[in-house]
Design a protein around this nucleic acid. Structure first.
Lengths: 158, 158
DNA sequence: ATCTAAATGATACACTGTAACACCGCAAGC
DNA sequence: GCTTGCGGTGTTACAGTGTATCATTTAGAT
């Protein structure tokens, strides 16, 4: 289990595995894993921090591309739609998915000191949102669950 | 309990009570509940939908003010900081708080059809986020919990 | 009365995201 | 082969959201 991007780990594996999983899933599903989409996912997999669309754009440009905003947003839309990446609403930023593919309902832990973000999988109808929805008779279609605070390392340092 | 803004209710009461509660709390706490702040809260209390900062700005302008963006954002910052309003991250918008004052950890149910938003109070360390944080050793300072879907009325209609 | 801190007024700008259109490449079908 | 359609890319221009900065006013404290 990738319980923890807060823990040390061999990060090259994250990148390689993430890319391969996406490639495999696209092949299965008949999706086009184009060079741009692949490159954007690779950038996102590059660290466990959320990146803004314009950060992505800058990196594409340092690859030598004359990239404009729609290029980044299109690739990000693709990745988010198909579950290869997630949007962090609180940060207006994006992060590579660190779990197995398929529909899932992520929750995020955002460290305000080291900026790292960890993804955890959840049950959409559980938790406080599920409870509130049940009480109100509300039908949940999508959830946003994000916590800001301190990761173990940064909490110790403080 | 205001379990449900989805239910019919006398809305003038919402506005009057909300304003009075804020006024009272500001007096207690030595906060300045200035005309602009009061007016912005009144606008937010005007319905159970989230309003963007520029929606607020437009309404201030139709009051005859030559309002610029910082005016709306400052008032909203004040209201959010002191718990009279909340920011809905998913919508880049704001809504009046519908619960008693003091620190609390809201969750929101957002109807994608009628656009109404209901606030529920939660325990910051409970739910799926609390579970994930506990497992990772993460210290939660703030949470974002928002569900999009269908309110009872809109679900029936569909 | 004067001083100080907070709030407001105003300009300008930065960041985030999208509409619209032209173009390209490839696969499906005639 | 040809062409037709569709998804992806290249590009321009703009819309929406949020802030830094500085001047000015107001409200309270001494």
């Amino acid at each position: 289990m990738p319980a923890d991007a807060f823990d040390p780990h061999d990060h090259q594996d994250c990148i390689a595995e993430g890319l391969e999983a996406a490639e495999h899933h696209c092949a299965e599903a008949g999706l086009q894993f184009t060079p741009i989409r692949r490159r954007v996912l690779e950038i996102l997999l590059g660290d466990h921090m959320a990146l803004g669309a314009y950060d992505i754009l800058d990196r594409l440009r340092s690859d030598g591309l004359n990239a404009q905003p729609p290029m980044a947003y299109r690739a990000l839309d693709f990745l988010v739609t198909h579950g290869f990446a997630h949007r962090i609403e609180r940060l207006n930023a994006f992060i590579a998915c660190s779990h197995t593919r398929g529909d899932h309902t992520p929750a995020f832990l955002i460290c305000r000191t080291c900026q790292r973000v960890v993804e955890a999988d959840t049950d959409p109808d559980a938790g406080e949102l599920g409870r509130a929805a049940k009480q109100a008779g509300f039908v949940i279609e999508r959830t946003v669950r994000e916590a800001e605070g301190l990761c173990p390392k940064c909490a110790d340092a403080a």
